[in-house]
Design a protein around this nucleic acid. Structure first.
Lengths: 232, 232
DNA sequence: ATCCGTCTGTCCGCTTCCGTACATAAGCTC
DNA sequence: GAGCTTATGTACGGAAGCGGACAGACGGAT
């Protein structure tokens, strides 16, 4: 495929507002984001920059016990690793593709250069950093104070927002890892929701059926994060 | 007091490496940071920028239930509100002085100007943003997976590091709010530690007695965050 | 010295969630 | 379609922490 040269069609929020020249400078290459593809590994130097247009990336922390838990997530609203702009060259966490999609890639060098020269791009990334920061901070509160059901709804709704499709390819096992709970807890939480036909969950696929009613069960954290995203 | 003009004596990590001219440009005024003094209120425009040299600031999220929980903390390693550099002009959270100390203050305008002109200052703030970001992300994992005892030890050790004094003026009630748990849970966690003489807790003051042994009880999150701070 | 507000220790029943285990079911391979 | 692997449903005892309450203790104010 030819490098991406115009911005007219980009669904990535950071690229969306840029001039054609700005986008050109980034030498973007289209990439398929296939499930489990690693964006960066914990403590390894970053080696490329990704702008998702669809799909979802997860950032996870792995503890000594071997348990992993999601500590951040991003889709077409962001870029990864955005902390390049903060001077970071690696992260203690791992980032990988969680829901398949596509997007663009460029090198660390191109990105760093472009960010230095293009104030619009820099501002977009910084603003995105700010929403990410808020998302993390509210996540701290959420994990301490809300039930598994609430957090599970939040996760599903946030993912639904970003993926744009009603069918999410994920197992209970996987969702449990994201939330930092038992696999059985996820099953137990999803069953009643399935009874009520708010969603359907069959062998690796969770389908969102009645979003409105899921929204009634989600904790306020979902709305706070959503509002802060739209402000920026 | 006269405005602060040299950097030789600053204990604030962001100011520490700056040239005299850079510091001058910030027009810093010395401030006492008295307990409960608000740095910014939730959803209100920021009105000044603070560089702590001692003491501790807390950022808290208040939920609909009325419960509050700490979602971030900073001391002399940082500046608040650092997210100015990310384009934010307010925050959904509240920030206030939790442990008394002192530092410097400047206006939003001076800070923004200085950050635009002085790349060293900007880099310092961005690097600080990155450690703060890591602190938040690991906090998500910690709150989901670790016990109240572990989190309590982490909080005490982090505070001890920043405050530099063994006596911390805080009630169980207050610490409970920070951790997002019941007051009684804090009492229950501190009692055995007091039995072992790792600390002493009397009426509004917690004294760290045997740091080393508290370190044995803290979760890995403490070390991860600490390492990432020193890398930057 | 007394009063009063705050802080701490303690308790009880309850909920949530954990660790673990096992059984069934659904899809994949041969 | 037999056999395997993976996903889901279910169960049980137990731990952690909650909500709420109460009593004693401390210290500042009068």
């Amino acid at each position: 495929m030819a490098p991406y040269e115009t911005n007219s069609e980009s669904h990535n929020a950071i690229l969306a507002g840029l001039s054609v020249a700005s986008v050109k400078r980034l030498s973007l290459l289209p990439v398929e984001l296939v499930v489990n593809y690693p964006i960066y590994e914990a403590s390894q130097p970053f080696d490329a920059v990704y702008f998702p247009e669809s799909g979802l990336l997860s950032i996870v922390s792995t503890l000594e016990s071997g348990k992993s838990i999601e500590v951040g997530t991003l889709g077409r609203e962001g870029v990864s690793p955005s902390q390049l702009l903060l001077g970071a060259r690696s992260s203690p966490f791992r980032c990988f593709v969680q829901v398949a999609g596509s997007g663009f890639r460029t090198s660390i060098e191109r990105f760093s250069e472009a960010v230095g020269e293009d104030s619009r791009l820099r501002e977009n990334v910084l603003k995105y950093e700010n929403s990410f920061r808020i998302q993390c901070m509210q996540g701290i509160a959420c994990n301490a104070l809300h039930t598994v059901e609430q957090r599970c709804c939040r996760w599903l709704l946030m993912t639904h927002d970003r993926v744009g499709a009603d069918d999410l390819k994920l197992s209970h096992e996987f969702l449990a890892m994201m939330l930092g709970v038992r696999r059985a807890s996820v099953t137990e939480v999803l069953l009643p929701l399935q009874e009520l036909e708010l969603l359907r969950s069959v062998r690796g696929t969770i389908s969102i059926l009645k979003r409105k009613q899921l929204e009634e069960r989600v904790c306020e954290c979902y709305w706070l994060i959503k509002n802060c995203e739209s402000l920026n």
